[in-house]
């Protein structure tokens, strides 16, 4: 599905309506179906807010978000949270099943499908564990499976690997790319991490400091799998870092 963001603005009104904080300033972009797009921007610029507005968790103050020309229906935009947001009272499998349960899928059928995801996500043998009994990397895989099993029209990911060690992060990046290459979800990924953006994305959107607007749009035309430390990736990284540095210095 293609995503259109039209003049999207978000201002948080302070207590009593006075002194609002402008977080998103007239953001426009068009994202092609099946592409992997990353938003990168200085910390606190409004990346999470952008995802929350797109997911419908926060109303927009201006503009609109359209999926194939229509406002997204509830439950059609999946969101993977930075801190996993797993239900602690549900086992890995029951967490993965949650969306199907809400959609009214019969127990036997949702169990079958959840177990397919358990396998595909390398969680076999851990399906009956509770989130606190899983490693961070496993928890995040459960969270991603929980989102993808509902086949959302658009997948949002808010710094999903930020709290993992770099080894686990790299392997999850590769895992996510493998999934995406077979499924071709439309993915909107947010990160601080330039290396991650370069390794994963078809396109990188660089955001300004708050209130966030688009500074630059970079198409990444390198073939996958990419060599993280190869000269092309390094050159791209340098460019992005320079653009981000400008944002810091303006601040």
């Amino acid at each position: 599905m293609s995503l259109t963001i039209n003049g999207l603005g978000k201002t948080f009104t302070g207590a009593g309506g006075a002194g609002g904080v402008a977080v998103l300033a007239r953001l426009d972009c068009l994202i092609a179906p099946g592409s992997f797009v990353t938003f990168i921007g200085p910390s606190g610029c409004g990346k999470t807010t952008l995802l929350r507005v797109i997911a419908g968790l926060e109303p927009a103050s201006a503009g609109q978000v359209l999926l194939d020309g229509r406002p997204p229906a509830p439950g059609r935009v999946g969101l993977v949270f930075q801190n996993y947001a797993l239900f602690p009272w549900r086992t890995a499998r029951a967490n993965i099943e949650m969306g199907l349960e809400i959609a009214g899928v019969a127990p036997a059928e949702r169990r079958r499908r959840a177990l397919e995801y358990v396998k595909a996500f390398g969680l076999a043998g851990f399906e009956d564990r509770y989130p606190h009994e899983l490693s961070g990397g496993m928890q995040q895989r459960v969270a991603i499976a929980r989102t993808l099993i509902t086949e959302p029209a658009l997948v949002l990911m808010d710094e999903p690997f930020a709290s993992l060690d770099s080894q686990t992060r790299n392997s999850l990046q590769e895992f996510l790319l493998g999934l995406w290459e077979t499924r071709r979800d439309t993915v909107l990924f947010v990160t601080h991490n330039v290396d991650e953006a370069v390794f994963l994305s078809d396109e990188i959107f660089i955001l300004s400091r708050r209130p966030a607007r688009l500074v630059q749009r970079l198409a990444v035309e390198l073939p996958r799998p990419r060599d993280r430390t190869g000269p092309e990736c390094n050159a791209l990284r340098r460019r992005i870092l320079d653009l981000l540095k400008d944002q810091q210095e303006e601040a």
Binding site: R52, A55, G56, L57, P74, G75, V77, G78, L79, F81, N83, A85, L86, F87, M98, G99, I102, A103, R146, T147, T150
Partner: peptide, 10 residues
Amino acid sequence: ILLEAARTLG
């Protein structure tokens, strides 16, 4: 966050 996670799941 858990309420929001549930809401994004429909």
